[in-house]
Design a protein around this nucleic acid. Structure first.
Length: 830
RNA sequence: GCGCGCGUAGCUCAGUUGGUUAGAGCAUACGGUUUACAUCCGUAGGGUCAGAGGUUCGAAUCCUCUCGCGCGCACCA
């Protein structure tokens, strides 16, 4: 008789949306400012709106998410907000690319309007992804870094720091990106390996002799102000103090400095204004004149001696000059080299050193304080602190916060054109844009000059570094307003330690004389395969998060993200997703088995857990011990370890062993006492509910589904928001509102624990026997004799009936280890 | 060059303060499964814990050195 079983299937994609709507409707993730429970506040990274979402976003955000959910179950009042960093250079670049426009070419108001339009669109995309992943964010706490509130805060802080003397304006050599036409901070410069040509160029000495210098920047020849050699270099000793003439007929001194490397090139180097940081140093140290030949958009100015390069780009000018030098026979050698070049992280353009007037936040004098503050924060993983310290101690520039861009928070400053007085309006008028102020009055100080509005906007990190303050001052904080600083925890990637962590601590020190958070959770990157990083630049390749969720479900993707330990780079493994799917199915099926057998279960059927069968107490104790282990792991942000502990418990102990064992009592007829059956029911109820609870931070949808599941008359599982086998008995509307399981008391004696171990070992022996004999695990054995010590028999005693059932023995008996084997009987030594 | 991290089964990784015979999943081989399981269960094979030296009764774990990989910083004429 063949009967096609109608298999019941958990339709993850459909059910996940159902529960997401339920959570939102019921406010399951909402932060309650009136609650007296202990706070756990999260300083969520506001993602930069700079393009499409990729798997890297999913990876890092799910990591913080699992902690938020755990803390909620552990009884904390969790504040888990989301923000959006939707201004600044990255956003402008996105908008320019998408709309094929140039910010510089548009009226400011028009460009800002387009920026807002585009970022709002992306914001929705981001939000939809977070929601479809089931992130337990309280969306009422959403903020945006370009909002009026954030702008007001940023400008207020600017004024505050300026008045404290922590912000200053200075005309100085700054790191400058000619493509973006803006200054940048040290933290935004990264190294790129680039091929380049190392030219040996002949200069002419006073006596007509040659002096050959080596350079990769021949186009800067017109700005050459000196030639340097090492003081110990005997090759050039004769020429030191004299002058040389460049092939462009510029006569400059030959000086010594021990920063020159004798080995590199010819050992003679030209100093130009400015080719690199050393040039800046030399010009200052040796008091050299400055000849700036580059404009702020990276084009050359008109030069008498070489008019050909006028208004040419760096690359074009280099070609022109090289051709010219070749013609004149001044190039003695050309060598292809590969060297690191400091480039702007947003556009890969080599950074130039140009004199501009910029605003800075003093951080160099704060190095020691910053390092001390870093020591007061718990870093997870702890070695990440080193990176912070390395970066802070290696800082060479104050934090340049002005950007000559458009879509950002305006610097709220007017400067008097006569006495240079810096006028910052009263903060009650913030946010303001000085450029757009119609009325500009006379200077309040000298009364003579006019006030010139500042045109720059703030580095977007200036606002981002204030996220702890943004959270702290949110209108949603109720009676906790202003009491959320420092926050409990900041989750973020290791790549932005040098920016976001550093600047946030800077702000914390200046504004609060305190650290911004107690703990830092630093995550790694997800890689598609060895060496292939998913980042803003690569865009994440073919793996699109939305599509992954659609094909595999959010729970499965989430699960896969928790495989690697915190801080480590991990590979995206399809296999991990498969593993997640299997766990989901397993939870579903185990639930089906349990619900179908527990229909008449009442929570008060057992007066005290001590009444339970030993094996039932064991599985309950195991579930609680696992919860304790997981809790410890979560508290140290070791979610992968928590996941592992769960799998060990659920897959091995609960499904493979306990469920198989307990089936005996579930299926048995009247020969069994009600108490024994009730004991099994009680254990199944609690151990399974504990399992659901413990894994719910990882896979919140399937666990909610099972919490609300009911075994219907038709023999199928139905799950609805307003009902559910567990939901009605627990009296909580969501599994995400119940309490983390805790160890209540020692409910298992030591001997019982040893008995369980012995029992499991015995089961394994029998399974091994059946496997070798090619028997099915359910094959009946007419008689089995366990042979061992009397003590072992006593240990096994409480489990005898269950053991007999699970190995499918008709008769299970015991013999002393020294007795003679009974022929034709299966004898297992224990 | 400096700093950090890593190197454990064919693959991806666990391995808590040094302590029985180093674990898991996947893959492989064999077998079994339909009274939860788009399966699932069982069994087996598979490791010089990168290498060398040291500390110790005892080292994958601690120390030193070497090699390889990754990352950060510096160099970047």
């Amino acid at each position: 008789m063949e009967r096609e079983k109608t298999k019941e299937i958990y339709n993850a994609q459909e059910r996940e949306g159902y529960w997401q709507k339920f959570w939102e409707r019921e406010g399951i993730n909402e932060f309650d400012p009136e609650s007296s429970r202990q706070l756990f506040t999260i300083d969520t990274p506001p993602p930069t709106i700079s393009g499409a979402l990729h798997l890297g976003h999913v990876f890092s955000y799910t990591q913080a998410e699992v902690i938020a959910r755990y803390r909620r179950l552990a009884g904390f009042n969790v504040r888990y907000p989301m923000g959006f960093d939707n201004n600044g250079l990255p956003t402008e670049r996105l908008v320019e690319k998408e709309k094929k426009i140039k910010g510089r070419a548009l009226p400011l108001a028009e460009f800002v309007r387009v920026c807002l339009e585009v970022t709002d669109l992306y914001k929705e995309q981001y939000k939809n992804l977070w929601k479809s992943l089931g992130l337990s964010i309280d969306w009422r706490l959403e903020y945006s870094s370009i909002s009026r509130e954030a702008q007001r805060l940023a400008q207020t802080v600017f004024k505050e720091l300026f008045e404290k003397g922590a912000i200053y304006q200075k005309e100085a050599i700054a790191l400058y990106c000619p493509t973006c036409s803006t200054s940048v901070a040290q933290a935004e410069v990264e190294d790129n390996e680039e091929t380049s040509v190392f030219y040996d160029i002949a200069f002419t000495g006073v006596d007509g002799d040659e002096l050959i210098i080596s350079t990769t920047r021949p186009e800067l020849l017109p700005a050459c102000e000196a030639v340097f050699v090492h003081p110990d270099d005997e090759r050039y000793a004769m020429m030191v103090g004299k002058t040389v003439t460049t092939p462009l007929q510029r006569t400059v001194p030959i000086l010594v400095d021990d920063k020159v490397s004798m080995e590199k090139g010819t050992g003679a180097v030209m100093c130009c204004t400015y080719g690199d940081e050393t040039d800046v140093y030399w010009v200052r140290k040796h008091n050299l004149p400055e000849r700036i030949i580059l404009t702020l958009n990276g084009k050359f100015i008109h030069l008498e001696e070489i008019p050909e390069i006028s208004s040419k780009s760096i690359r074009e000018a280099r070609n022109i000059i090289v051709a010219l030098l070749r013609e004149r026979g001044a190039i003695k050698k050309e060598q292809q080299i590969c060297h690191a070049v400091g480039v702007h992280e947003r556009c890969d353009t080599p950074i130039e050193f140009l004199p501009t007037k910029q605003w800075f936040v003093k951080i160099l004098e704060k190095k020691d304080d910053l390092i001390r503050a870093g020591e007061r924060i718990q870093w997870y993983p702890s070695y990440m602190r080193k990176r912070y310290e390395e970066w802070v101690s290696g800082l060479k520039w104050d934090w340049c916060i002005s950007r000559e861009r458009f879509f950002g928070v305006p610097i709220p400053v007017f400067v008097c054109d006569s006495c240079e007085y810096v006028y910052i309006p009263d903060e009650t008028v913030f946010p303001i844009d000085p450029k757009l102020e119609a009325e500009i009055s006379a200077c309040p100080k000298c009364g003579k000059g006019g006030l010139i509005p500042e045109k720059s906007v703030l580095d977007t990190w200036f606002t981002s570094s204030l996220t702890p303050d943004i959270n702290n001052t949110s209108p949603m904080n109720g009676k906790l307003a202003g009491k959320l600083y420092p926050m409990s925890m900041r989750p973020q990637g290791h790549d932005i330690i040098r920016t976001w962590v550093v600047y946030s601590i800077v702000m914390g020190l200046y504004r609060h004389q305190d650290i911004p958070w107690h703990e830092l959770m630093i995550s790694g990157h997800i890689l598609l395969q060895k060496g292939e990083k998913i980042s803003k630049k690569t865009g994440g390749g073919a793996v699109k998060p939305e599509e992954l969720i659609r094909t595999h479900s959010a729970d499965a993707i989430r699960y896969a993200m928790y495989g690697a330990s915190l801080g480590r780079d991990a590979f995206y493994e399809e296999q991990e997703v498969k593993k997640g799917k299997k766990l989901i199915v397993k939870l579903y099926n185990a639930g089906k088995l349990i619900l179908s057998n527990l229909q008449d279960f009442e929570t008060d059927s057992i007066r005290s857990e001590s009444e339970l069968e030993a094996i039932d107490r064991w599985i309950i104790a195991r579930s609680r011990a696992t919860a304790t282990e997981m809790a410890r792991a979560f508290e140290h942000y070791e979610y992968s370890r928590a996941r592992l502990a769960f799998e060990d418990f659920f897959w091995r102990d609960f499904c493979d062993n306990y469920l198989e064992i307990v089936k005996g009592r579930l299926w048995s007829d009247e020969s069994l006492s009600n108490a024994q059956r009730a004991s099994a029911h009680y254990a199944l109820y609690h151990a399974y509910l504990n399992a659901l609870t413990m894994i719910s931070p990882f896979i919140p949808h399937i666990t909610e589904e099972m919490y609300h599941a009911e075994f219907s008359d038709g023999g199928v599982i139905v799950s609805r928001t307003d009902s559910g086998f567990f939901a009605t008995r627990e009296g909580q509307k969501s599994i995400h509102c119940i309490s983390w399981p805790v160890v209540k008391a020692d409910i298992l004696t030591e001997n019982e624990a040893r008995g369980v171990e012995l029992m499991l070992a015995t089961i394994a022996e029998i399974r091994k026997y059946k496997s070798i004999q090619h028997m099915t695990m359910g094959a009946r054995l007419s008689s089995v004799i366990l042979k061992g010590k009397t003590e072992q028999r006593n240990l096994l005693h409480p489990f005898w009936n269950d053991l007999t059932f699970v190995i499918r023995a008709e008769v299970l008996s015991f013999q002393d280890e020294n007795s003679i084997d009974v022929p034709d009987t299966l004898t297992i030594r224990i």
